[in-house]
Design a protein around this nucleic acid. Structure first.
Lengths: 151, 151
DNA sequence: AAATAGGGTTGCGTTACGAAACCGAATTGG
DNA sequence: CCAATTCGGTTTCGTAACGCAACCCTATTT
């Protein structure tokens, strides 16, 4: 039986996981945010199998998270670039990173050190907040249940 | 060959995905945020196979995202409750939800409507920001590459 | 001409996933 | 007290995904 998919789910989290909810896709997006654009570079830097990389890249392109651009002068040379949709995953990736740093610190103790390129200052901790910026926890928020299906 | 795992990865995103990076785990956490605590309720509300649910629940318990509590009066009745670590996934889930709502709106057009329980006001859009709250895009931030391995 | 790099595809074995069946303890109903 | 149902799983089995290695074609470099 096919792996469950949630294209038609009423829950946007489920639909989001449908596109980037597997082991590799978010890591590829992260790597793209590091500046990686070439197939071979993704392959070497992530240590991912080539067929899996092909599959994930084309799926991300299908979902318009990445754009495949032919940059070859004579023949074909491709770049996979983040789209606006892909760049919009930035908060997701950073939230995951901060969670991982907090609860599963690196074995070697190296800390998160993301900084504003312009000012050199570290980025702030992400939080859910109301319109005024007041932080909200899961208990403060009313989460309407989805209508009927998964998630 | 075994599915690649990233327990020892130098990248906190990879380590985070190691714990909640599969199809179901985040949906289970989300469901727990909705208030679900019982095995059967997870099973029915998510439509997940029982063996997969068992596996994911015990893995989430192992990773201390959920806590398994025996609430039985006479015999054994269990509840799976979010830990602090699990509740800390709130920004991740909300960021994913907002991304999904923006780029893959629900087929039926129903919008996100998360509100502060106290004030009744909707929650704000999540963003990466500097210490003063100034929003930062992926281009504004210097992302140090991990030392050597995946992600 | 040979070697190398880029961007894949194909085969094959192992692992994970999903559905359904089954199971023992606990609870509920009569 | 007995039967049926609920709870929280485990087992079995077929399919899908993953990971590796090998191969392939084109283009560039030596």
């Amino acid at each position: 039986m096919a792996r469950k998919r949630f294209d038609d789910s009423n829950c946007s989290v489920a639909r989001a996981l449908n596109e980037v909810g597997d082991w590799w896709s978010l890591l590829i997006v992260l790597q793209a945010m590091y500046g990686t654009r070439r197939y071979v570079d993704f392959q070497q830097e992530l240590g991912i199998a080539k067929n899996i990389l092909c599959d994930r890249l084309s799926r991300l392109v299908d979902n318009e998270v990445l754009a495949k651009v032919n940059v070859g002068e004579h023949g074909a040379r491709y770049e996979y670039r983040l789209t606006d949709k892909g760049r919009d995953l930035f908060p997701v990736v950073i939230a995951l990173r901060q969670w991982g740093d907090k609860w599963n610190p690196a074995p070697n103790g190296s800390a998160l050190d993301l900084r504003d390129r312009a000012t050199g200052r570290p980025i702030g901790q992400m939080h859910v907040s109301d319109a005024d910026g007041k932080p909200l926890t899961v208990r403060d928020v009313f989460l309407p249940e989805p209508a009927d299906d998964a998630g």
